[in-house]
Computed example of a mutant assay.
Amino acid sequence: MKWKSFDDREISGFYYKPPARFAGKRPVVVIVHGGPEGQSQPGFIARNNYYLDELGVALLYPNVRGSTGYGKTFVRLDNGAKREDSVKDLGAALDWIASQPDLDADRIMIMGGSYGGYMTLAASVHFADRIRCAVDIVGISNFVTFLENTEAYRRDLRRVEYGDERDPEMRKKLLEISPLTRAAEIKKPLFVIQGKNDPRVPASEAHQIVATLKQGGTPVWYLEGKDEGHGFQKKRNQDYQMYATILFMKKFLLDGMGE
């Protein structure tokens, strides 16, 4: 699927449609890849087939600006101070969903891991009136604390992508665009999933957004894998994460549909 973003640039993604036995407008889960130099590609979607085949939920995998596979110019369009342009691409995806007669724009969930987790949190801020709920998996909540606390071996590489937090002007910009700074605007239910031993996106990124949302009264679930790092790798933990995500979806995305 393709749609135009705020600057008339074409953004594309992959759309998975539920089986025909599910009648009426279908809820949508928008799944944002990590990286940000990553790319969603068509293929076997493993456990996510359950959402399609058993819950009747449509899936949209957008490749917002910054994704690889579309040329060097495209991959650099979200660097540094241009970070939120990729969030606007996600907003354009919501516009595309609203234009589809078989999709329910009132039942949208955003989900993503790592950088996709940041995008999920950012969407929860910017599109609080357009989504039903969100699932943030090992996501960045504050770019400054992330850069300060990520493992030293990768810090300089991340500064090239996100900006150098040691520069006063860049630090100001990073704080401005960090979801934690605008957490009071997150009103829809959020499920945060984190590995305790994550060297890339430290667990403190999850702790601070969860604590802030709890203080503000926003519904927030938190799942921490005590023996996990950057994403759950052990099958028992993956199973638990999946079951918990299904419960979250049934409660906040599908409630009232009789699914």
Rank of each mutant, 00 (worst) to 15 (best):
K2Y: 12
W3C: 13
S5L: 08
D7V: 13
D7N: 14
I11R: 02
F14P: 03
P18W: 04
A20W: 09
A20L: 07
G24R: 11
K25C: 08
K25V: 02
R26L: 12
R26A: 11
P27M: 14
H33P: 05
G34M: 08
G35S: 07
E37D: 11
G38Q: 13
F44T: 05
F44P: 04
I45V: 04
R47H: 15
R47D: 14
N49M: 01
Y50E: 09
Y51T: 02
L52D: 09
D53N: 15
E54N: 11
A58F: 06
P62E: 07
V64C: 01
R65K: 08
G71K: 02
K72C: 10
K72F: 13
L77I: 05
L77T: 06
L77K: 07
G80W: 03
K82Y: 09
D85I: 10
S86L: 06
V87M: 09
V87C: 05
A92Y: 03
A92D: 07
W96G: 07
I97K: 05
A98T: 10
Q100I: 03
P101E: 07
A105D: 10
A105C: 00
R107L: 06
I108R: 01
M109Y: 06
M109G: 06
I110Q: 01
M119I: 09
T120P: 07
L121A: 08
S124C: 10
F127K: 12
D129Q: 15
R132W: 14
R132N: 13
C133E: 04
V135G: 03
I137Q: 01
I140L: 02
I140K: 00
I140C: 02
S141F: 03
V144L: 06
F146M: 08
E148D: 04
T150Y: 02
A152E: 15
R154H: 10
R158H: 14
V160F: 14
G163Y: 00
G163L: 00
G163H: 06
D164R: 03
D164V: 05
E165V: 02
P168K: 09
P168I: 06
E169P: 05
M170T: 15
K172Q: 12
K172C: 09
I177D: 00
R182G: 04
A184Q: 10
E185C: 04
I186P: 03
P189Y: 08
F191G: 00
I193N: 01
I193P: 00
Q194C: 08
N197M: 10
N197W: 02
D198T: 02
D198A: 03
P199D: 11
A203Q: 13
H207R: 15
V210C: 05
T212Y: 00
L213F: 06
Q215S: 06
G217E: 11
P219A: 13
W221V: 07
L223R: 03
G225S: 11
K226G: 10
G229D: 14
H230F: 12
K235Q: 14
R236P: 03
Q238Y: 01
D239Q: 12
D239P: 03
D239K: 12
Q241K: 11
A244V: 12
T245Q: 09
M249A: 10
K250F: 09
K251G: 05
G256A: 14
G256H: 12
G256S: 08
G258Y: 05
